[in-house]
Design a binder for these strands. Sequence first.
DNA 1: ACTGATAGTTAGTTTGTGCTAAACTTGTTG
DNA 2: CAACAAGTTTAGCACAAACTAACTATCAGT
Lengths: 144, 144
Amino acid sequence: MTADKETVAKLRAERFQRVRDAHQMELAEDYVELIAELIDRTGEARVVDLASYLGVTNATVNNTIARLQRAGFVTSKPYRSIFLTEEGQALAETSRERHELVVHFLMALGVDEFTAEADAEGIEHHVSEETLQAFRKFMAKKKG
Amino acid sequence: MTADKETVAKLRAERFQRVRDAHQMELAEDYVELIAELIDRTGEARVVDLASYLGVTNATVNNTIARLQRAGFVTSKPYRSIFLTEEGQALAETSRERHELVVHFLMALGVDEFTAEADAEGIEHHVSEETLQAFRKFMAKKKG
DNA sequence: ACTGATAGTTAGTTTGTGCTAAACTTGTTG
DNA sequence: CAACAAGTTTAGCACAAACTAACTATCAGT
Ligand SMILES: [Mn+2]
Ligand SMILES: [Mn+2]
Ligand SMILES: [Mn+2]
Ligand SMILES: [Mn+2]
């Protein structure tokens, strides 16, 4: 009853495809999350600030913002600061929540805050809803 | 004593840079891990098999193998199957161990095997040694 | 030994993500 | 109000990772 080779391969291939898809969304998620944070904290999201927080050049931010605008997550007009669309705000909000959850989970496991923040920045894009639920359950049990 | 804006930005930027670096290594890790597995199970690693397990075309595998050869992880000769260098074998081994650890950890947390395997495929590339240690500790406590 | 099926390669394209350098706006301030 | 600094945009480059389509090599079975 062990599945044949083709079926095994197809299953594996779907996993890799899912990771590639997650990477497609990854930049969008980190950008909108950061844009929301900057607007919240300073009133506006500027290209220079995004660039310095992301560790890339202004030109790179510009390119990416253009793509995110095409994708419907942000709006921007020449020489003006950047805003989130409804869709962008929704994505920012769920990304922020998931980010925090991953950080808190890692810290509950005993990882120090600095490392938790660093690892979460990558991990957050690859956790399914089921795994997030397991994270929540662990933290609830710990506290309770 | 709250750090100034530039310092905060620099810290954040380093985190994002680390994620970008991890993504650079990601394909290499998944490829050598799979090549090692195929050699182990079937005696050789062929382009078609890699392609079907990864869910990409033969042409894509070919390109990537060329790049991995340039990077020193594999050797390949035209129309012959693919081999790992010493360095490639070492990377395959550490990648395999880390992959398994992440899967087992997620399952120990209560995530089902299917989801654990799927999530691990992405997560594995973003866990620091410290976080892996926390995973090990959790599993030891659970068992003990 | 041929030949057809299977496997591998090559060429050319697309998209994403980064870079530098140069040009251009905007807004402040002397 | 003119000059300057700060910020933004554009142009042009490079590389990785995917694709399709066309070509070439290998190897088993007749
Ligand atoms: Mn995040
Ligand atoms: Mn992130
Ligand atoms: Mn990733
Ligand atoms: Mn992986």
